[in-house]
C-alpha cells in the first residue's frame, strides 16, 4: 500500500513539485499499479522471467556511433553539442 507520504518522498527525490490534487491522483495510480501485482502473485511459483537463457554476449568490436545532430535531434534544449538540463547542484 502506497501512502501519500511515499509519493511525497519520491516527488522530492525527483525534485518535482506536485499539487494537492496530483498527490491524490498519483497515490491512487500507484496503488492501482500495485494491485496488478496482486494478480501476478496468483500465478504458480516459478513462472517468472525464466527463459533458460544465459551468457548472451557480443564481441568487443566498434560500431559507428550516431552523428551528434541525430543524437541531439530530440533534445528539448542543447548548447554546443551538449544536452542542456536544469540546475542539479
Amino acid at each position: 500500500m502506497i501512502s501519500e507520504r511515499d509519493v511525497l518522498h519520491i516527488a522530492e527525490l525527483a525534485d518535482i513539485g506536485i499539487t494537492r490534487e496530483e498527490l491524490d491522483e498519483f497515490t491512487g495510480q500507484f496503488n492501482d499499479i500495485l494491485d496488478y501485482f496482486d494478480i501476478l502473485d496468483q500465478v504458480e511459483a516459478g513462472a517468472g522471467a525464466e527463459t533458460g537463457l544465459y551468457n548472451v554476449f557480443r564481441d568487443d568490436e566498434v560500431v559507428p556511433s550516431l552523428p551528434p545532430d541525430e543524437i541531439l535531434g530530440n533534445a528539448g534544449e542543447t548548447e554546443d553539442d551538449f544536452f542542456r538540463a536544469p540546475r542539479v547542484m
Binding site: 551538449f82 544536452f83 542542456r84 538540463a85 542539479v88 547542484m89
Partner: peptide, 18 residues
C-alpha cells in the same frame, strides 16, 4: 558527464555529455 554552468557556487544549468 555533467558540466555545471553559470557560477561555481550556484550553477544556473547543467550540460550533459553521454
Amino acid at each position: 558527464r555533467l558540466v555545471h554552468k553559470g557560477g561555481a557556487d550556484r550553477p544556473k544549468y547543467t550540460l550533459v555529455d553521454y
